[in-house]
C-alpha cells in the first residue's frame, strides 16, 4: 500500500488564557496571567490553592445537539469546543463522515465529587457508606442521578466529540497520564497511515482543578517547594488529514507528522532523538499545567506561529509516561506530493 502521511490542517484551543486560539495568543502576547486561587472548589486546605481555570466559556454554540451538555463534564466540554474549532479552522466539510476518527487523551476525573458526596450524605447513617460496600451501593444508587457514571467515564470525552461532529470513524480515549494528549495525536496519525481513517480529530483535554487531582499532586510533592505546579484545565485539538486528500480539497497545511514515539517508565532523551530542533514552546506561559492537554496546546501554539523548521513536542509525567511527536514544516509536505 502506498505510504499515507498525516498532515495537520486545523487547530483548536481552550485554555485559562482564553477560549480559542486567537484569544489565547492575544493573552500570551499581552503577558496576561490566569493563575489565581481556585474558584471551582475550596482549595485552601491544600499546599497551594493556585489554579488555572477556564472562565467565560459558553460551550453551547459548539454543540450541534446541546441536550448532550448535561452529559458532559468540564474536560469533555473543552474537548468538544476545541474539536469544533479545529474543524472550522481547517474548513473541513461539515456533516457525517465515515472516515473521520476521534482520538483524545485525558488523565483522571473529578468523579463529580460534590454530587457523589451529596448522594452519600443522604444515607440514613452518613458514616455508614464509608465502611460498608452494600450501604455505599444503596446510598449511591438512591441518591445519584443514574447518568452520573456516564458523565464521568473518560471514554465519553471522545464519544461526545464524535457525536457532535458525526464522526463515524475509529474512536478512542487515551489514558496515559500527562503524556496522553500527545499520545492520542500519535495514535491518530497512525490510523491515517494504516488507512483506518482519512482524518482524525486528535489532542488532549483535561481538568485538574478538583479535589482528587489536587490531592494526588500534593502527595507527589508537586504542590509545594520553590516552584509548585499550578493545576489547570483546557483542551487542544488538531485536525489530522491524509495528505493527498487534504491537498486535493485545497486545505491549508500547517505541518506534516514525522517521527513519533510512545513509552511508559523510560527516560525521555531516547524518545526525543530524531527531532532536529525543539523551539521554545511557551509551556510555562500557558497559565498552569494542563496535564494531558499541555503538550498538544504547546504544539498548537507552535503551529499557529508557523514552523520555520521541524518541531518536536514532548510530554512526560510523574509516573514515567512519555510521548514525543515531530512535526515538519508544510513546504516539505507540498513538495513531496508534487
Amino acid at each position: 500500500m502506498k505510504e499515507r502521511r498525516a498532515v495537520v490542517t486545523g487547530l483548536g484551543l481552550v485554555t485559562p488564557l482564553g477560549t480559542g486560539l486567537g484569544a489565547t495568543r492575544r493573552a500570551l502576547a499581552e503577558g496576561r496571567c490566569a493563575v489565581a486561587p481556585a474558584t471551582l472548589f475550596d482549595a485552601r486546605p491544600f499546599a497551594s490553592p493556585l489554579a488555572g481555570e477556564v472562565h467565560d466559556l459558553d460551550p453551547r454554540p459548539y454543540f450541534r445537539v446541546p441536550k448532550a451538555l448535561k452529559l458532559c463534564d468540564r474536560r469533555t466540554r473543552f474537548a468538544v469546543c476545541a474539536a469544533a474549532m479545529a474543524l472550522e479552522d481547517a474548513g473541513f466539510p461539515a456533516g457525517p463522515s465515515e472516515g473521520l476518527g476521534v482520538s483524545i487523551g485525558t488523565s483522571g476525573s473529578d468523579l463529580g465529587a460534590e454530587e457523589l458526596s451529596a448522594a452519600l450524605a443522604r444515607a440514613e447513617d452518613p458514616a455508614l457508606p464509608a465502611r460498608d460496600t452494600d450501604a455505599f451501593g444503596e446510598a449511591a444508587l438512591a441518591g445519584l442521578n443514574p447518568l452520573w457514571l456516564l458523565v464521568h467515564l473518560p471514554n465519553m470525552t471522545s464519544a461526545h466529540v464524535a457525536i457532535q461532529q458525526e464522526a463515524r470513524g475509529p474512536n478512542t480515549t487515551v489514558m496515559t497520564g500527562w503524556a496522553a494528549g500527545l499520545a492520542a495525536i500519535v495514535e491518530g496519525a497512525a490510523w491515517i497511515a494504516e488507512g483506518r481513517a482519512d482524518a482524525v480529530l486528535a489532542g488532549g483535554a483535561d481538568s485538574a482543578v478538583h479535589p482528587f487531582a489536587f490531592a494526588a499532586l500534593e502527595q507527589e510533592g508537586l504542590l509545594s517547594g520553590p516552584s509548585p505546579l499550578v493545576p489547570a484545565e483546557g483542551a487542544a485539538v488538531v485536525l489530522l488529514e491524509e495528505q493527498e486528500a487534504a491537498l486535493a480539497r485545497g486545505a491549508r497545511i500547517l505541518g506534516e507528522v514525522g517521527a513519533h514515539a510512545l513509552s511508559a517508565g523510560t527516560r525521555l532523551a531516547a524518545l526525543a532523538a530524531g527531532a532536529t530542533s525543539a523551539p521554545s514552546l511557551p509551556l510555562e506561559r500557558l497559565a498552569g499545567n494542563l496535564l494531558a492537554a499541555h503538550a498538544p496546546a504547546a504544539l498548537v501554539l507552535a503551529l499557529a506561529e508557523g514552523l520555520a523548521g521541524p518541531v518536536a513536542a514532548v510530554a512526560t509525567g510523574p509516573a514515567g509516561e512519555a510521548s514525543a511527536l515531530q512535526v515538519l514544516p508544510p513546504d516539505r509536505a507540498a513538495r513531496s506530493a508534487a
Binding site: K67, K70, L71, N145, P146, L147, L150
Partner: peptide
C-alpha cells in the same frame, strides 16, 4: 421533545 432512553432515566430521577 427528542427524548432518548437515558433521558427517561434522567427525568424519573429528577
Amino acid at each position: 421533545l427528542g427524548a432518548e432512553s437515558i433521558d427517561f432515566l434522567d427525568i424519573v430521577f429528577r
